[in-house]
């Protein structure tokens, strides 16, 4: 009797799904994958078939992932869509957690000081002129923003900046930069405002309340209330 299969191929309407067993050795897996794909490859079809790879509880290093992708790619009309695994390395998990965290800081960021956080920033205090705050995600300032704020500095264009008093020297989101208008805006009583990148790739300042429509994923509350 044949031993348990290490590679199972399933066809779905989107393409192929490869389930790779996580208890055999990587070498066996590679061999069997190669074998299975060769025997089932249909060279008469022209269209590309996208492949989703599930690796179960096996952890694949970047090099191994590349190797498998290469292996699958060699079979003419197969394209690897993504490789999914149930496991993450500690480093990846920590980074994910960091990027997702809101870090609250109660401080005044003074001239010459730079505050940098990997995830979202909640600043309870002011950013004075000459001071800079940077965040991988969004920036929320409960005080006055008079210095520079840089949200999404890793390239997240969806990041937003909001502040109770929005009087920045410069706003940066991802790689877009805008500066305060030269003439003083009307010194009326203004509500809390937010800045985001609009459809035309410009940084726009608007009422805070527009965010719930523009960036619904800021809400982390699951379900209704």
């Amino acid at each position: 009797m044949n031993k348990k299969q290490n590679v199972t191929i399933k066809g779905t309407k989107d393409g192929l799904t490869l389930h790779l067993d996580d208890s055999c050795s990587y070498e066996d897996l590679k061999k069997e994958l190669n074998h299975k794909l060769t025997e089932s490859s249909r060279s008469n079809e022209d269209r590309l078939i996208s492949v989703l790879v599930h690796t179960g509880n096996r952890y694949l290093s970047k090099a191994q992932e590349e190797e498998l992708k290469e292996l699958i790619r060699q079979k003419k009309n197969l394209v690897v869509e993504s490789i999914r695994s149930n496991v993450l390395t500690k480093v990846e998990a920590e980074k994910l957690k960091q990027d997702d965290e809101i870090i609250s800081v109660a401080k005044i960021i003074r001239s010459g000081q730079v505050l940098e956080v990997p995830g979202d920033l909640l600043l309870i205090g002011d950013v004075n002129p000459g001071g800079t705050v940077k965040a991988g995600g969004n920036i929320f300032i409960l005080g006055a923003l008079k210095g520079i704020a840089h949200a999404g500095y890793n390239g997240d264009k969806n990041a937003v900046i909001s502040a109770s008093v929005m009087k920045p020297t410069q706003l940066r989101i991802s790689d877009s930069i805008t500066r305060a208008p030269d003439e003083n805006m009307e010194e009326g009583k203004r509500e809390m405002e937010c800045a985001y990148i609009d459809d035309e790739n410009q940084i726009t300042i608007d009422r805070l309340q527009v965010l719930m429509h523009l960036r619904p994923n800021i809400s982390k509350l699951q379900g209704g209330f």
Binding site: R110, S111, G112, Q113, N128, P129, G130, G131
Partner: peptide
């Protein structure tokens, strides 16, 4: 005032 702000930051 800007320089004072900087100095206060350093003093803190």
């Amino acid at each position: 005032v800007r320089d004072a702000d900087r100095i206060i930051g350093l003093l803190e």
